[in-house]
């Protein structure tokens, strides 16, 4: 007999998220989309709230944010659920990538539309790519890279978009840290090369 778990009103039902991850693991296509939506929504909410409240001078710990999203989506403690961490962070990576791309596209569209002085975005999108990266080009490059090296793309998702450290990425993907380091170095080189070519 399980009693309902205490949760914030806005928190998705952890069981549901767990089921989604299981479905993703079983390769059910629709589940990936649904999981992404859940993670995406939660991340946006959290990122917005967190960054607004972050006091001046404090550096946001991205992993803390992601962990918080994880806790809220999946709860904590249950060993079986911890096994899903890899899948969860993969979803986080993809979600972050999508958030950024969407935002960049909208920004472009707004610029091209041109007639407004002030460009209002959804107030709650608080995640922005670093200024030095053309996120749309990066997105395209990642699509190309995924053709020949999906694992490398996954590492980029975890490292760059989900903000995991080398060790955390390694744990999430069940790889050795050394492998992650090697892959990451080559991935950055290849992306640098590819993006520079444009």
């Amino acid at each position: 007999m399980s009693e309902p778990l205490p949760s914030d009103e806005s928190t998705p039902n952890p069981d549901h998220v767990t089921q989604l991850i299981r479905a993703v693991e079983r390769g059910e296509g629709g589940a990936t989309d649904e999981l992404l939506v859940a993670v995406y929504d939660e991340l946006r909410k959290l990122a917005t709230a967190r960054m607004r409240r972050e006091p001046a001078g404090h550096t946001l710990q991205p992993t803390a944010l992601v962990h918080e999203a994880y806790l809220r989506l999946l709860g904590s403690g249950d060993d079986a659920q911890w096994d899903h961490r890899g899948h969860f962070f993969a979803a986080v990576g993809i979600a972050m990538r999508r958030i950024l791309v969407e935002r960049a596209r909208r920004y472009q569209a707004a610029k091209h539309g041109g007639e407004h002085d002030r460009v209002e975005f959804d107030d709650d999108v608080a995640i922005e790519a670093p200024a030095d990266v053309d996120i749309i080009a990066l997105d395209d490059a990642l699509d190309t890279l995924a053709q020949k090296d999906p694992r490398m793309v996954k590492i980029i998702h975890l490292r760059y978009f989900a903000g995991l450290s080398v060790e955390e990425t390694a744990a999430a993907m069940e790889l050795s840290p050394r492998t992650v380091k090697r892959e990451w170095a080559v991935a950055k080189a290849w992306l640098y090369q590819t993006l520079g070519d444009d």
Binding site: E54, L60, P62, V66, E128, P130, R159, G163
Partner: peptide, 17 residues
């Protein structure tokens, strides 16, 4: 390159509250 991760970058870009 790519070492300033997405989530960190936002904080840098946000004026102190």
């Amino acid at each position: 390159f790519l070492e300033t991760r997405v989530l960190e970058s936002r904080v840098m870009a946000t004026p102190p509250p």
